[in-house]
Amino acid sequence: MDLFFNLAINGLATGMLIFLLAAGLTIIFGLMDVLNFAHGGLFAWGAYSGVWIYDISGSFLVAILGAIVTGLLLGALTEWLIIKPVYGNHVQQILITLGFMLVLSEMLKVVFGPNQKSAAPPAYLDGSWQLGDVILIKYRIFIILVGALVYGITYFILKRTRIGLIVRAGVMNKEMVQSLGINIRLVFMLVFMVGSAMAALGGVLLAPYSGVIYAEMGMEFAILAFIVVVIGGMGSFTGSLLAAILVGMAQAFMAYYVSELSLAVNMLLMFAVLIFRPQGLFGGKGEAA
């Protein structure tokens, strides 16, 4: 039983990290019809800048804030430099964002050096609690709580505030929103920045969880995030949370029982969704426009 709990918590923690990456991806896609292949690069930048700030300041909280600021700034830069020139052209968008991903991950090697870096959780999050037979590793619980918090706050903003209303309306019909006198381009930029910040937060949280960070991890996690977005439904926020937990769980359990199949299982999930429900489990969009 304790094994089951441990694996479940492990899977939940991984799922939350993937969720942080996938949520930004899916909202940006829903609103702007842009699939950002550079999203994983923002994730890796969050991890590297966070670890760097942590080494300097010694405070994990400052590191998290620093990573979020990095994400916001890089997001603004990406939207302005890379996405803006190619609105409306899918093929160009896909091509250019992948190119930017390449530049982002190579820049990581230039700025922080080509070798992988190690990272450890702060003392107060290190170690574990013992609850009967079940061992709860503090840092994993922390990730799950942060993920739930981010989900809660974002959900609240989307559903209960005016800006959320505008974003949701924009996802449904951006021309209509624009014709009501709202600067949809500004909304795009803000959403892009928030999405990037979430990815960067995911990155900095991952660093002490996996122990090492390296430039290629952006791409690895981006693949998982794409699988999540397909399973959950493009543009569906809650869908991305549930699918991320599903993928995280599948990853954790398969890695323990049949480690060869952990990626394969997620691929099979994605295949099944693509065959039987191409719009995703929770999505309405996704059919060829």
Partner: peptide, 21 residues
């Protein structure tokens, strides 16, 4: 067969993931 009836993103994502596999 799996993705070409969908938007162009899907083929890109699926092939990326398949190559990883």
């Amino acid at each position: 067969v799996l993705t070409l009836r969908l938007q162009s993103h899907f083929y890109a994502m699926l092939t990326l993931a398949l190559a990883g596999l």
